[in-house]
Amino acid sequence: MAESGAKTPRERYRAQVRAEIKQHAWEQIATAGASALSLNAIAKQMGLSGPALYRYFAGRDELITELVRDAYRSLADTLRMATEASKSGADIAALAHALRDWALEDPNRYFLVYGTPVPGYHAPDDITVIADGIMRMLLDACTALPSDGPAAPFAEHLQEHRRWAEGHPAPPAALHRALVFWTRLHGVLSLEAAGHFAGMGFDPGQLYAAELDDLRRQP
């Protein structure tokens, strides 16, 4: 009998096949995008029949969910480690640089979660929980920043429209900073990861750092 917690040979084999399927899925995504993901094509690459592959993943959406879940968990772990390594704890610069390194390490993974949504796909609740946890880390870091002067009009708007913050007690200025972080820094990252700065003659990393510095100075 297998020890408690130990996988049986059948379970190990299943895990290996699922991992191979996911690897082929990433290769498809790199070539044609997530919307073109095909389990039947993966089955042919692996020398399996379609029905045999469906014993490991019930359909395209289940496979996408597994890839998205892996990506979000990887990012959450990366940001958590960056926070723990920072001397000041909730550090927006540490989060920003960890996010950029993570995104550029595997742009296909980045675009799966922050690129164009896959048509007809809806992430399950457990993935939303992971994404909310990432946002909470960002809100913690934005709340830790000093805030001088009156809040901008949009920040005041966020005081009454903060459902997206999932109950986080961040003040309006911190909510504003978090959204600016998400829009401006993800904007630079998306353009860089897609290669749109190629040939322009400047360092995208310097642009990213400049946007981060500007964000940190925001009231």
Rank of each mutant, 00 (worst) to 15 (best):
E11H: 09
A15D: 15
A15R: 14
V17E: 01
R18Y: 01
E20H: 07
E20N: 04
H24A: 11
E27G: 02
Q28D: 07
I29K: 00
A32M: 03
S35A: 15
S35Q: 14
L39K: 02
L39R: 01
A41K: 13
A41G: 12
Q45N: 05
L48A: 04
L48S: 00
S49N: 07
S49R: 10
S49E: 14
P51D: 06
P51H: 05
P51S: 11
P51A: 10
A52I: 03
L53T: 03
Y56H: 15
E62C: 08
E66P: 00
L67V: 08
R73N: 13
R73E: 14
R73I: 07
L75G: 00
A76Q: 12
A76H: 13
D77F: 02
A85K: 10
A90V: 01
A90C: 06
D91M: 12
L95W: 05
A96T: 06
A96V: 10
H97S: 10
H97E: 15
L99P: 00
E105V: 11
D106K: 12
P107T: 05
G115F: 03
V118W: 01
V118E: 05
P119D: 08
G120D: 09
Y121K: 09
D126E: 15
I127D: 02
T128H: 14
G133H: 06
L138T: 13
L139H: 01
A141M: 07
A141F: 03
T143Q: 12
L145I: 05
G149R: 08
P150E: 15
A151T: 10
A152D: 14
P153R: 08
H157F: 15
L158K: 01
H161L: 08
G167Y: 04
A170N: 00
P171M: 10
A173M: 05
A173N: 05
L175D: 12
L175R: 13
H176R: 05
R177K: 15
L191R: 12
E192D: 15
F197L: 13
A198L: 09
G201F: 11
F202T: 02
F202G: 03
G205R: 15
G205L: 04
Q206V: 12
Q206R: 07
D213A: 14
R217P: 00
